[in-house]
Design a protein around this nucleic acid. Sequence first.
DNA 1: TTGTACGCGTTATCAC
DNA 2: GTGATAACGCGTACAA
Lengths: 336, 336
Amino acid sequence: MSYVLNGGPRGVAPETRARVLAAIEQLGYRPNGIARSLRMNRTMTLGLVVPDTSNPFFAQLSRAIEEAAFAQDYTLLIGNAAEDDERQTTYVRTFLARQVDGLFLVPAHGPASCVPELQRSAVPWVTLDRQSPGGGAPAVLADNRNGARAATEHLLGHGRRSIACISGPEDVVPANERVGGWRDALAEAGVRPSEMSVWHGTFGRRAGYLGGRALLADGRFDAVFVASDEQALGVLRALQELGIRCPEDVAIASFDGIAATAYSTPALTTMAQPFGQLGQTAVARLLDRMDDPDADPHISVLPVTLVARGSCGCPDPPGGDAPAETEPAETAEGAQ
Amino acid sequence: MSYVLNGGPRGVAPETRARVLAAIEQLGYRPNGIARSLRMNRTMTLGLVVPDTSNPFFAQLSRAIEEAAFAQDYTLLIGNAAEDDERQTTYVRTFLARQVDGLFLVPAHGPASCVPELQRSAVPWVTLDRQSPGGGAPAVLADNRNGARAATEHLLGHGRRSIACISGPEDVVPANERVGGWRDALAEAGVRPSEMSVWHGTFGRRAGYLGGRALLADGRFDAVFVASDEQALGVLRALQELGIRCPEDVAIASFDGIAATAYSTPALTTMAQPFGQLGQTAVARLLDRMDDPDADPHISVLPVTLVARGSCGCPDPPGGDAPAETEPAETAEGAQ
DNA sequence: TTGTACGCGTTATCAC
DNA sequence: GTGATAACGCGTACAA
């Protein structure tokens, strides 16, 4: 019976197979995955804990992971830490108790008190977007520093010299790496970063909006590097309210490459993260570790690519260029 | 041992309890949730299958469900159907095999061939956003028709008379209900809807962009009701490219109330769905059915509320009004 | 080729 | 108040 469903370790006579299948049909039998998991010691389930599901960047990242996991027949348990350390720990604990075969963690900013717990457990895990606070686990990240540098260099290439920086929380490593890249570019161009200003906030739209109003109102700057697209969208709105034109008065370049950047006005110039590749790499690294727990905890740094659009001063392409997803065909219904 | 951890059905002597706790500590014992689930016949896990995770509306809806489920100690298994019927069925099957205690389904457009399967299974389920194609299950929805009508009436109130409609796929019920509400409002105002045009596409930004270009280029319309915020954001971009001003030349009102609407330029006037309430109601209905599988498959229709902003011609409030989430405080770092 | 029995880690019942 | 044990449903080793 197990043998017929699973093409089991051994064969089964055609006549018996038919009899079994008939019984299955008649009884409406459904295999119980829980019992199977208990016996096999594998759940075919992976956990994913994210700082904030409502942030489109994490949403797009989650989707990429889901896609890669699905392709390998794994299902995803998703937890939303809501930027709360306690809640993050709760989810990690819950997932471990549920015997996930592996875990992805995008650490929320703050203490990450769940890391020791993870290390004690035998469950393989991988950090995403940010390096493991405690170390010891593989990580899959974007090349934050060089990306930020390239974005800033692009603004410099447009002749901008007073370039501000709006970034994420001060205790988040990638936020600071992006600030570092911005400094690198300015230093190399001989612009003194000390004349500039950095603003720190959360990674949401609202933070960008507030940062924009705080930093760009007085006309000191002719450009701004923003550490995330979400924030940049908020900056765009702030500029509009202040009557400052983008890109004429203030040019913008940002980071992440989320889908929404292709439809704003002007469309955002951004350093696009390779979402698909991030997801695939993360899953691959996790499977590596599941095979061999002592495998090298490799840190994968993936390159980001400049997508030049209107916000930096480049020609603004039609809406929806460089589509992240394939789009089904549309149907138009004429006048009635 | 089980008794000391669970405060089990019966008491345990203090001395024994201490001994057990010591052993737990020493052996690094972790309870196995899978074995527990097998024994208890409950996994404390709910499934959620969504048509398209990358659509911010579904992302926000998922988050609301996750929130409500978390509050009841349930964990969520999330599946992305990617608007593909086969994939939707695969996820439903997988979740049933994993013995989820209940399932939320936001049916993708199309055949929904997983419904018979769900009905055959004994697992309680609830449809969201759209009614169950096969019936028999509770549903939690927004008041699409009246909401669309209110939005259109608001545009009429601004003196607009030539109001187009951009909607979702023709085989999606809520899309058509919203078209229905638009027609209702026009009919009541004595405007002949036959002079108008309806455009159908998918629920994404790109579809709105294409619809906007197709319908609004020639100046026939002075307003448009758009069936989803995502599409409306695309319309906004299309108008900009066409050199048409919003709201002066064409006013916009849309539907859903996603967070992004508060930061576009102009900010979007929209019929906001009560996400938190939708999530709580959905979870409550599911728990009802888990208690009593024969409970009435109630259809909950929740009201939507008009959020008036700049796109319809109302005064445009500062960015980020009516915030959907509470935002942590920001920190500003002065000039360096 | 097929039937049978064991064990995965829990919880709950039973006899002590 | 406690210790032993059956059962959840599956996969598989072993005996037939």
